[in-house]
């Protein structure tokens, strides 16, 4: 979130000096990309999915990836996790080139990343508690700590009441939220959302977007949000989260005073980056393909 002159906007307070904010934004660890694709190519059989894709995501930034179904959006996420390998190009996570990593090395990289799958991908045989605790259990964390962390995460997604339920007892929206809680355990620096609102009703989809906004603005998490729903784009690129005097999270719209720059949009088109920039630029675009995508005509 930046003010008109390009500076990051924080919850306004008299104690924060403008120069402090400027310093915080320009700190080397903030400027260095957390995720970087360099000329990545991928094809399945004769079908080219990604053709020389390059982009980067900075710390605390959300990259919304738009594109038609089967256009390679989810493939980008799978590449970041190392679930598949590119034909060409390099992929860097936190400055580390993971392109040629083997499975054990990738396991270490994946500890930094949380992934929210399209349908939640919860483990059917485990209750909500065990699903959320999964990563901690694998790391051999003490039971007391596990329970505290699981409850904290379920509180974050407002599902503490469902702690003992089985995934089959949950609605689609609840499954996604449990999926988010599971992804956030261990406080990953990067969270990947693979169409987390697909098939959900608008209020539930809005709730999912609010969680993504909270992660971005209050927890400084870098994320990639794959979607083809324009409502998601509007929420994520025009609203920000702040904490009011009572400690409650509030969502405010950017306006004349503030213009968010921690959310960028990338549109895939025929395996290439068809558009990259801010939501305002996307909305103003005269490109017929983008207009059809954005305005439906």
């Amino acid at each position: 979130m930046l003010a008109d002159d390009g500076k990051r906007a924080l919850p306004l307070s008299d104690e924060i000096e403008f120069s402090d904010m400027e310093e915080a934004i320009d700190a080397p660890e903030r400027v260095a990309p957390v995720i970087e694709f360099r000329d990545v190519c991928l094809a399945f059989d004769e079908k080219v999915i990604l053709d020389g894709i390059s982009f980067s995501v900075r710390r605390g930034e959300t990259k919304i990836i738009l594109g038609r179904s089967g256009g390679g959006k989810s493939t980008i996420i799978r590449l970041i996790l190392g679930l598949i390998k590119p034909d060409a190009g390099r992929i860097l996570i936190d400055g580390e080139d993971i392109t040629d990593y083997d499975e054990p090395e990738l396991m270490q990289v994946r500890q930094k990343i949380g992934m929210v799958f399209q349908e939640g991908a919860l483990f059917d045989s485990l209750p909500v508690y065990e699903n959320v605790a999964y990563r901690l259990r694998e790391q051999g964390v003490e039971e007391d700590e596990v329970e505290a962390e699981v409850r904290r995460m379920l509180r974050f997604v407002a599902l503490e009441d469902a702690i003992d339920k089985m995934p089959s007892e949950l609605s689609g929206g609840m499954r996604r939220r449990v999926g988010i809680a599971r992804a956030l355990v261990g406080d990953p620096e990067i969270v990947l959302f693979d169409e987390p609102t697909a098939g959900l009703d608008p209020p539930t989809a809005r709730t999912i977007c609010e969680l993504a906004i909270k992660l971005r603005d209050l927890h400084d998490v870098s994320s990639i949000f794959v979607t083809h729903e324009m409502n998601n784009l509007r929420y994520l690129s025009s609203e920000y989260a702040v904490i009011d005097e009572n400690g409650e999270v509030m969502f405010e719209k950017e306006g004349e005073r503030l213009c968010m720059i921690n959310t960028e949009i990338m549109m895939l088109r025929d395996g290439k980056v068809g558009f990259e920039g801010k939501d305002e630029e996307l909305m103003r675009s005269e490109d017929p393909y983008i207009r059809t995508f954005v305005h439906g005509k």
Partner: peptide, 10 residues
């Protein structure tokens, strides 16, 4: 996608 989720969770 549970297998992918498992791999994603390390």
């Amino acid at each position: 996608q549970q297998i992918e989720a498992m791999r994603a969770l390390g």
